[in-house]
């Protein structure tokens, strides 16, 4: 019998644990609809900023073989585009609005537009590694991050904080839970560099970019394990999930839902069906009756 994949992520009910990660086909309404129709349990928008951003000139991605490096530069149509971005989704679609900005006021403004448009949750992108003033420099400053978090939590929607690889993320987790965030998205990309040895040039126009994909999976898994172990909070485990095995491992480490990003490089979004099928078969083989019983499973071993 096919297992039921429905699950809970904090206050959200999902038809399955797969969540479209921010930055992947999430800035166009017809693509977002396609992602929902492909079967995601929830879709996250591209990070929207108060004003539209053009982003960097290509090359914006590098395929390393063991992962990807990107510097898209937060290209997005701006928060005012949100009503249109959501316009083709059915009522029942679960939408996580990702927002980015430079100040607590930026975040508050974007979050307010999200509340007006009835998004299910708000994800704070505090951790983009390749745009100065709009990312890593924020999450590395715990006090400033908390100012932003307070502004947005006060609007009353579930808030997820997207973490990056910093020395202080456990401190940020503890203190943002005190401020009332619902959970965490773990993790964003890790700053890196790729050089073309034929020409000698750094490949990305922005020089530095964010590492994603298989290369970061063990790091993401460790962060999820550490946070869940300490706090038992809702986590969207994201980072190098490129098949059902990594998705199961994320759940075992303590993620309630699993973010899918780099899996979509060079792949049609419909192929997430393979991950869902793999999870289902694993549940049958191992005798798990639902997703909830897999969440944090490795902590009981």
């Amino acid at each position: 019998m096919a297992r039921d994949l429905s699950t809970r992520l904090g206050s959200l009910s999902l038809r399955n644990p797969l969540v479209l990660a921010s930055g992947f086909i999430g800035s166009d309404e017809s693509l977002l609809r396609r992602a929902w129709e492909a079967g995601f349990g929830a879709v996250t928008t591209k990070s929207l900023t108060p004003k539209p951003r053009k982003g960097y000139d290509p090359p914006i991605v590098v395929d390393l073989g063991y992962g990807y490096l990107n510097a898209v530069g937060l290209a997005n149509p701006g928060i005012e585009y949100l009503p249109r971005l959501l316009s083709l989704l059915p009522q029942e679609a679960v939408v996580i609005l990702s927002i980015a900005g430079a100040t607590p006021q930026d975040f508050r403004h974007c979050a307010e537009v999200g509340v007006e448009n009835n998004v299910d949750a708000i994800e704070l992108n505090l951790s983009c590694p390749h745009v100065k003033g709009l990312g890593m420099d924020i999450v590395e400053d715990v006090g400033y991050s908390l100012d932003i978090i307070e502004e947005v939590v006060s609007l009353g929607r579930p808030v997820y904080v997207k973490l990056g690889l910093t020395d202080t993320y456990m401190e940020l987790v503890a203190r943002s839970l005190d401020r009332g965030v619902e959970g965490f998205t773990v993790m964003n990309t890790v700053k890196g560099l790729a050089i073309d040895i034929e020409s000698g040039w750094p490949i990305l126009t922005n020089v530095y970019g964010g590492l994603s994909g298989p290369a970061i999976h063990p790091i993401a898994l460790r962060m999820v394990h550490e946070i869940y172990g300490e706090y038992r909070v809702p986590i969207i485990g994201t980072g190098g999930v490129t098949g059902w095995r990594e998705a199961v491992a994320m759940l075992y480490a303590g993620a309630s839902a699993v973010g899918i990003g780099s899996y979509l490089f060079n792949r049609r979004v419909e192929s997430i069906g393979d991950i869902l099928k793999g999870i289902q078969q694993h549940m049958e083989r191992k005798g798990f009756k639902d997703i909830a019983s897999m969440v944090g499973y490795s902590h009981h071993r």
Partner: peptide
């Protein structure tokens, strides 16, 4: 075409 690999969405055929 910016990324060329189906993730950034810049090359969508609108609608």
């Amino acid at each position: 075409v910016k990324c060329g690999v189906g993730v950034c969405g810049s090359c969508v055929v609108e609608g």
